[in-house]
């Protein structure tokens, strides 16, 4: 069997509060194969965001192991975490999070800049990606001059410039109307097919979740059985 892109073993996260620790995640075991699209679902407070932060190397687990692309990344330093994010993980956020004072093209180029790719080649790559998401004519626009759907396309292009094997999308359609949201989802899936990028999709929306190959439910910091959770969710 090939190495999965993500493997977690007994992943736990405890936030230190004033009265002892507050457990947010407990003993999460996950395996996500290369090229899978997985939806991560669960009510608010279920630990989705915490799990996503840990998977995105923005946070560290309190206990347990997190193996990304075959390497244990649970105990990396901040500099090492940044390197992993740069080369392994792309982020797409609900509120886009584009740099307001940078043009669309500059936003897309940013990861390559941090990776030390020379400007000419970085610009070329970014331009190709912008064209791929249908925004070749918008490169010199600032985020404020773009529509919500266009901004999310820029954000997707940016997440993919450094060719990461893993894309983490946190409510990518949450700030968009249904039609635009569907377009964005289609774009994500097309890119997933073209590039083989694994996608973890955090969403409340069952319609969006249905795009995924597989759904994982979280409740009270634990992965719960799919059926049970669905029954719970519908009850």
């Amino acid at each position: 069997m090939p190495t999965p892109v993500i493997e977690t073993l007994g992943l736990s996260k405890v936030y230190q509060g004033s009265v002892g620790g507050v457990p947010v995640l407990s003993h999460v075991d996950l395996t996500i194969e290369y090229g899978e699209v997985v939806a991560l679902r669960g009510p608010s407070g279920s630990g989705k965001s915490t799990l996503l932060n840990i998977l995105g190397c923005l946070d560290r687990p309190s206990r347990g192991r997190y193996v990304l692309g075959g390497s244990d990344v649970s105990g990396l330093t901040r500099e090492e975490q940044a390197w992993v994010r740069l080369h392994y993980i792309g982020f797409v956020f609900q509120s886009f999070h584009l740099l307001a004072h940078a043009t669309a093209l500059e936003n897309v180029t940013l990861p390559l800049h941090y990776a030390g790719v020379p400007r000419g080649r970085a610009d070329e790559t970014a331009r190709d990606l912008l064209a791929r998401v249908g925004l070749s004519h918008r490169g010199s626009h600032f985020p404020a001059q773009l529509s919500g759907g266009e901004r999310q396309r820029v954000a997707i292009a940016r997440a993919l410039t450094a060719r990461p094997p893993l894309l983490l999308a946190d409510e990518p359609t949450g700030a968009l109307d249904t039609k635009t949201g569907a377009e964005i989802m289609r774009l994500l899936l097309d890119l997933h097919k073209e590039r083989g990028t694994s996608i973890i999709l955090v969403t409340h929306d069952p319609v969006v979740a249905d795009y995924a190959d597989r759904q994982i439910f979280l409740r009270d910091g634990k992965v719960v059985d799919t059926e049970e959770a669905q029954v719970g969710a519908r009850a």
Binding site: G56, R78, A82, R85, L86, H97, L110, Y114, A115, A162
Partner: peptide
């Protein structure tokens, strides 16, 4: 703060 967070998420290291 947001800008710094975005840059960090993209992969900018603290030293960068």
């Amino acid at each position: 703060t947001e800008e710094i967070g975005v840059r960090a998420a993209i992969g900018a290291s603290p030293s960068q």
